[in-house]
Amino acid sequence: MWKKLILGLLIVLLLAAAVIGMRFFTSNTPFESKHKYLYIRTGQATFPEVIKTLRDSHLVKNPGSFEWIGHRMDLDQKIKPGRYEIRKGMSLFNIARMLRNGQQSPVNLVITKLRTRQDLAALIGRRFECDSASVMDYMNNADSMKVYGFDSTSIMTAIYPNTYTYFWNNTPTGIFKKFFAEYRKVWDDERKEKAAKLGLTPGQVYTLASIVEEETNANEEKGNIASVYYNRYKKGLKLQADPTVKFALGDFTLRRIYLKHLTAESPYNTYRVAGLPPGPICTPSLVTIDAVLDQPVTNYLFFVAKSDFSGRHTFSETYTEHLVNAKAFQKALDSVMAKRQAAKEDIGTQK
């Protein structure tokens, strides 16, 4: 009789252990996707709020059981803010341990081509806990910028296209610390020496490169275009760069620049103001920066799009040559526009 009783108790205990194991140590994720993210904000999330998020977002099948195991793992005292990846098939125990240990999922911030500080702040605000307003406040803070030798205008010259990896709850200070580290990496002794030979600071090289970046996607032309603007800059001539007019107007959809646009009052309008603009008009690639540093020695002062519409340019040393090249392009453009208009009229007559 005792043997049967003991055997029965063992079976009950084994069944209870199996139920507990099934509940806490096997898959407890109801979603079909490969993963979902749980966001716990700094200084705002309490354990009950996390439970509510898990329940409302359907991140676990049994939020009540998670609450039970969470209390026993001291999650209500040790929970850490951050962005956590809950992978399909995770158990309640694994999720609780991940939260207790603060094992966040990193965030990649991919910088490609940005034009303004507002663009940068918006991008960071979309990817991290800190919002765009706090990022703008950081960039506008003279003390924060001064530590690294920048100000609210020149700060964009410290932003280089790359992929930067952080935790989601990083602060603007932490985010920009990596930007500054990349800046120091880019401006090694070799690049500094090349800039010095041109009589330019790293910030001026960056700003000039930003104009070249907006002028062409053809890497083989970037050196010649850089030489045009550099030659004009050294001679004290206005750069007269169309992309700076777009930046001054804040209208990057403009396809053509007309006389009415050239009157925009802005330090970035290089048709009105001589020299380089006070800051960059976009974040140029390293290829473009190196094209500025390694530009060929030329006497070019002008360039215009080729009349074959290849996207390439014709370069000239004198204004007389430039007028001939510009006239050829305008003639080709007028011909194309006339053909398009004729085609529209022909379609209209067939209705």
Rank of each mutant, 00 (worst) to 15 (best):
Y268R: 00
K246Q: 09
L237S: 05
D74G: 06
Q104S: 04
K306V: 07
E182G: 05
E129N: 06
F303L: 09
M98V: 02
I225M: 07
G43E: 09
M139Y: 11
T263L: 08
N269G: 09
F302Q: 08
S227W: 02
Q341P: 00
I111H: 08
E317M: 10
V50Q: 01
K260M: 03
R87D: 01
F24T: 06
T173N: 14
T270F: 13
I155R: 05
T163W: 04
V205N: 06
P267H: 07
S65R: 06
Q341Y: 13
S27M: 00
D189C: 03
M156R: 06
V273Y: 08
G275S: 06
A241S: 11
R312Y: 12
F179E: 02
F128D: 08
L239H: 06
L92A: 01
R41A: 15
L262T: 07
N108W: 01
L262F: 05
P243W: 11
T153C: 00
I124R: 01
A343D: 03
M22Q: 10
F24K: 03
T270K: 04
Y229K: 03
P284I: 03
L333C: 12
M136E: 11
R272H: 01
F150S: 11
A343N: 07
N28E: 04
R255L: 14
S154C: 08
S105L: 01
R41S: 14
L208M: 14
V304C: 07
F329L: 11
T298A: 09
Y148E: 13
Y230A: 01
S316I: 04
L75H: 08
K61I: 14
L198A: 11
T207L: 08
Y183W: 15
V12W: 00
T244M: 04
L198N: 06
V304I: 11
D242G: 04
P106F: 03
K222V: 00
T253L: 01
L208Y: 04
E182Y: 10
H71V: 10
N269T: 12
T318P: 08
T26F: 05
Y229D: 05
S307P: 00
G70W: 15
L237E: 07
A338R: 13
L5C: 03
I155D: 02
K36E: 15
E220D: 14
S33D: 06
G8D: 02
F302Y: 15
N141H: 12
T270H: 08
I347H: 03
F315K: 00
A158L: 12
S132I: 04
K113T: 12
G174D: 09
G64A: 12
F252H: 10
L7A: 13
N141Y: 06
A241C: 02
K185Y: 14
D334R: 15
G149D: 13
I86N: 04
I225Q: 09
R100A: 09
E67V: 05
S335N: 13
T46P: 02
M22G: 11
Y148G: 14
P30L: 02
Q118T: 10
I159H: 08
Y39C: 00
E190K: 15
T253E: 11
G21L: 02
V212P: 10
H58I: 01
T244L: 02
A209H: 08
I40L: 15
I257W: 15
